[in-house]
Design a protein around this nucleic acid. Structure first.
Lengths: 263, 263
DNA sequence: CAAGCCGATGATGTATGCAAGGATGGCGCG
DNA sequence: CGCGCCATCCTTGCATACATCATCGGCTTG
């Protein structure tokens, strides 16, 4: 086990000592972990995030948990109301619509800027990626295609050569992540997606910024349709995050139980 | 003075009791106040924000100050590095460029969406505002024009009928605020600005979304040029926010000393 | 029997204490 | 005299204790 580092006079802390990996604050790591749980759906929208429960769950005090929640509230992943505590952001259908529209616009902006700013190397890489995605689509590898799809859009974000826009795009994508579970479920979706990407890629390569913008706008508006029509309010009423966690002895710092989804 | 509300057993708190206005947490009000100081330039970019000093300054403990700083870090107004503390975000010329580009793109998106979504009432209001701004420009009222300008752009944000996009726009504008001090200083700037607005308004009214988008893109790119070429790194080295604040008795909750800018 | 009030309970907001980490200044050595 | 090491200080991160507020259940009363 990891030898407990420093602070021998640590009074009591039910679970074992965590190695304190990098020069990163506990709050940040907590924020990452909680964000991960939300993004994977382990913490579904509407879930109540109880500070004490989370604190016990991660073996820290309430302070870093509070910090993490403050941090996360800035990303739009959670709601933080003055006396009501934190909940995983529940998105109404209307908001979901707006998010998709915004995502489409930002993606289109990225495509436009990327067309104007990408280096020859980046253009080549984009084309290569696109072609390999064609093979994945043909093979019907949804898993692989979904992953490559993230890389594809990410390449355009980066290609915009504008960290502000990129950050906005990444942030929006994160917020939408919980709602795009079944993205490529429909039968011909992979092929259609690839074809639409093709239009974007051709525009980028031919340096037609307006066309790239338009092509991406079309692609994104169709993506939206492909998403499952979630009622967006599965909000579990009383359940709180991180189960009862009664002082289980040696940490069990494993993947952590992430069951008990939708009631 | 405001009768101290509740909590008679409050142990000690050098300064007087603050009324605790609404169901808003101290941290939120602090975040607002600090943001205000930054936006008005009282806390210039690069200023070190010391938790204890701020705490004394506002008569609270360090905890709400910490919360406020976490909140603000999410808005991009301050930098928060693990052990180095918080500083008012200093923006490099490159970043400033990117911010302006991003702002332009988002504004253009707003113009596009507004063209598609604005109600007749909103269109009329926009036109009215534009016309009254014409009078302000003619009168050379820079103060008034600057204020109306915010309203004008804000109307387009709202007209997009998309709270996500609007929030992005507002956030970007806030981040740029400290750098747009001398916006309408140049001689013919008011008239030019108004003329460019006119192109946007005409496009919006004639429901030509693409034209509105393009007109706003042009307007914003020119706005950028009008900003003073700040070296963007006036970072005062040692100065910290909120002066020494040695326990001055009765609050003096006034506008607070906001001198000692650039060394 | 229903409705409203009141108290208990538990959570969040706030304050304070303590320790680790980084930065700074002084001192010693080359 | 200059450079580098080390001790100290100071600030932040974390933990804990306390106060306040919201919610919920039971009780009392009309």
């Amino acid at each position: 086990m990891p030898a407990r580092r420093r602070s021998p006079p640590t009074p009591a802390l039910s679970s074992i000592e965590i190695p304190l990996p990098a020069s990163q604050t506990r709050a940040e790591r907590l924020a990452d972990e909680i964000a991960g749980e939300i993004l994977t759906g382990a913490f579904p929208p509407g879930l109540r995030l109880d500070e004490q429960v989370l604190a016990r769950r991660f073996g820290v005090s309430r302070t870093p948990v509070r910090d993490a929640l403050r941090l996360l509230s800035g990303t739009g992943l959670i709601d933080l109301r003055p006396r009501a505590g934190a909940t995983v952001r529940t998105i109404t259908p209307d908001e979901l619509d707006m998010l998709f529209i915004a995502m489409g616009e930002v993606e289109a902006t990225c495509a436009r800027l990327a067309t104007l700013s990408m280096s020859p190397t980046e253009r080549a890489a984009l084309q290569n990626l696109h072609e390999s995605m064609g093979r994945l689509a043909e093979a019907g590898d949804r898993e692989g295609y979904a992953e490559a799809n993230l890389a594809f859009h990410g390449a355009l974000y980066a290609g915009a050569h504008n960290s502000v826009v990129e950050e906005i795009a990444v942030s929006l994508r994160r917020r939408l992540m919980p709602y795009r579970r079944a993205q490529f479920r429909a039968p011909g979706r992979l092929q259609r997606s690839h074809a639409e990407h093709g239009a974007v890629v051709r525009s980028v390569l031919s340096r037609d910024a307006a066309a790239a913008n338009a092509a991406m706008l079309i692609h994104m508006s169709i993506v939206e349709d492909a998403f499952e029509a979630m009622d967006a309010a599965p909000a579990q009423d009383r359940a709180t995050a991180g189960e009862s966690a009664r002082e289980r002895g040696p940490a069990a710092a494993g993947p952590a139980p992430l069951e008990r989804l939708r009631r």
